[in-house]
Structure formats: C-alpha cells, structure tokens
C-alpha cells in the first residue's frame, strides 16, 4: 500500500476500521457444525463478511467483528445457527 504525501482525506483499508465491532453484539450466533449442510446462505447474506468460508465450504464466525444482527440464523434453513444473548450464564 502506497501512502500519499498530501493533507486531505485519504484513507487506507483496515480490518476493524471502526474498531472491534463484535462489541456491538447483543445476541451471539452459535454455529452447530454437525447440523450445517454447507449451503453457504449465512456466508453470502452476512452483511459484515464475518462468516468465514473455508475451502470445503464449511464456515466459521468471526466474533471479533460480528455485529450480531442475526441474519445468519434467520437465513439458515436447517437451524444450524442459533442466537444466544451475550453474557448469558452457562
């Protein structure tokens, strides 16, 4: 990445440009990999790109940035993702 020597609003790409947005979360998506059928609906509909797609089409959730909107759980047709309130005592 080349930095430009000019004083105006030039911004550079950064993960977490607004900080660790996982802190925004009220509900935490929990993925049950046994139930997952690798349909990738959660991956493609995640507005935050925080569902990580692996080569075998299995997925993981990036909790550092996941804002907890719950779309992944809503679009999952096999209920492999459920939402749990953050900080809930186990």
């Amino acid at each position: 990445m080349k930095k430009y020597d000019v004083v105006t609003t030039i911004s550079y790409p950064k993960k977490g440009a607004m900080g660790k947005t996982g802190n925004w979360r009220v509900f935490r998506p929990i993925l049950d990999k046994d139930k997952c059928v690798k349909c990738l609906r959660c991956w493609i509909f995640c507005p935050e790109a925080t569902i990580t797609r692996h080569k075998d089409d299995s997925v993981d959730i990036d909790y550092v940035y996941c804002k907890g909107c719950g779309i992944c759980a809503d679009v999952c047709k096999v209920k492999a993702i459920i939402l749990e309130r953050e900080g809930k005592k186990k």
Partner: peptide, 16 residues
C-alpha cells in the same frame, strides 16, 4: 499528489 488506482485502494473523502 494522489490518485485513484486499483493497485492502491484508498478511499478519498470519507468521514473526518
């Protein structure tokens, strides 16, 4: 001094 360039993906003019 700066330019739009796919090899250098800056954002110009965002919130400051």
């Amino acid at each position: 001094k700066w330019k739009l360039d796919p090899d250098n993906p800056i954002t110009f003019g965002n919130i400051i």
